[in-house]
């Protein structure tokens, strides 16, 4: 056995007019808020784009400068410059041998008995 629920919809024009006004005003309020916020922050996007452009330019400049430095100090250029200024590799320089006697002897460390260190190791 089934029971039928009473279905009642308020179809009075005054109710729907009120509802329409209420929702429209909320919508307009939100839209105005959005427009206001957008108006207040309108400079952010162009600024961001400008900064992105600046960043890209600076990165390119940095990369180019890095490349310029590397080009300026390549091993070939340094070697050419050195050779052009009369330098030679020290391995190719003339060599002579001479007995330096005691002057070439390694220094001996002074020996003292007072600087002994006693270490005790305790295993746990």
């Amino acid at each position: 056995m089934t029971t039928r629920l009473p279905l009642s919809i308020d179809t009075a024009p005054a109710t729907w007019q009120w509802r329409t006004l209420r929702y429209l005003s909320i919508y307009l309020l939100l839209a105005m808020t959005l427009i206001a916020v957008r108006y207040k922050t309108q400079h952010v996007r162009p600024n961001l784009l400008d900064l992105q452009k600046q960043e890209a330019t600076l990165l390119t400049q940095r990369d180019n400068l890095e490349i310029a430095v590397q080009v300026a100090v390549t091993p070939q250029k340094i070697q050419e410059w050195a050779a052009g200024n009369g330098m030679i590799h020290f391995a190719e320089s003339p060599k002579t041998a001479r007995d330096l006697g005691q002057a070439a002897a390694p220094l001996t460390l002074p020996t003292t008995n007072n600087n002994t260190i006693e270490v005790k190791t305790q295993w746990k």
């Binding site: 390119t60 990369d63 490349i67 070939q76």
Partner: peptide
């Protein structure tokens, strides 16, 4: 660099 391939050490 900047959309180009570069070879800083040249030869």
């Amino acid at each position: 660099v900047g959309g180009q391939r570069v070879y800083p050490q040249g030869v």
